[in-house]
């Protein structure tokens, strides 16, 4: 049986809607607090920029719409994509709110040791401070050589060129280009506790 595109969408829409969420509604869970924050659906008008959904690994195409003033005003599924043909799931459909969100932090926050509050700081100050801490921590804890098991019950001095005092944990929704750049810098510094969400 061949389905028309319209009918196909109808068949598949049951998959992404309803289900557990609807059941919870019936349970009497209060959604009012979240509902009050729901934004108005924006109007799709302006320059269209091709993008990719930032959530799961299916790789749905998205179209980001930008107003004349250069503001992102809408994000929807890319109908050209052979993967999603314009459709998006609930998360993908909500991508706009990931970009335009009142709770998004857009300045650097700093918490001094022992403090009970955040302070706002300039980006440049933070970058210099982080670089200085990275250098100090590395230099105080760098191993050129280390005694390691020789496989015969003894130990042998081996070259390791690393530090165990620095660690890095990255997400898996960050660009390939970042992964490349970051592994390069970490390996340049001798960091071996280098991990990513891809592990788990």
């Amino acid at each position: 049986m061949k389905l028309s595109r319209r009918k196909f969408l109808k068949v598949t829409s049951g998959v992404v809607g309803g289900g557990v969420a609807a059941e919870l509604g019936l349970l009497g869970v209060n959604t009012a607090a979240a509902a009050a924050k729901a934004n108005k659906v924006p109007i799709k008008k302006g320059k269209q920029v091709p993008s990719i959904c930032p959530y799961c690994a299916v790789g749905c195409g998205q179209i980001v719409t930008v107003s004349d003033a250069g503001e992102i005003v809408d994000i929807q599924g890319n109908p050209d994509s052979p993967i999603n043909q314009g459709t998006l799931c609930p998360k993908g459909s909500a991508t706009f709110q990931l970009v335009k969100n009142e709770e998004r932090w857009t300045t650097v926050k700093y918490r001094a040791p022992g403090s009970d509050r955040w302070e706002e700081k300039p980006l440049d100050w933070a970058m210099h401070r982080i670089a200085e801490l990275t250098r100090k921590t590395r230099d105080a804890n760098f191993n050129e050589f280390q005694d390691l098991p020789d496989g015969k019950g003894g130990t042998v001095k081996k070259r390791v060129m690393n530090t165990y005092a620095l660690a890095s944990l990255g997400g898996a929704t960050m660009d390939n280009e970042w992964n490349y750049l970051h592994q390069k810098l970490m390996h340049g510094l001798g960091v071996v506790y280098l991990e990513n969400q891809a592990r788990i």
């Binding site: 920029v49 790789g59 857009t106 650097v108 700093y110 918490r111 040791p113 022992g114 660009d175």
Partner: peptide
């Protein structure tokens, strides 16, 4: 007061705000 960790929060750009590539499943 006992937690000595110095914490920096740096705000990140969203995917739509940068150029790059993803590799899907």
């Amino acid at each position: 007061a006992d937690i000595k960790t110095e914490v920096f929060f740096l705000p990140a750009a969203a995917v739509a705000e940068m150029e790059g590539s993803f590799t899907n499943t």
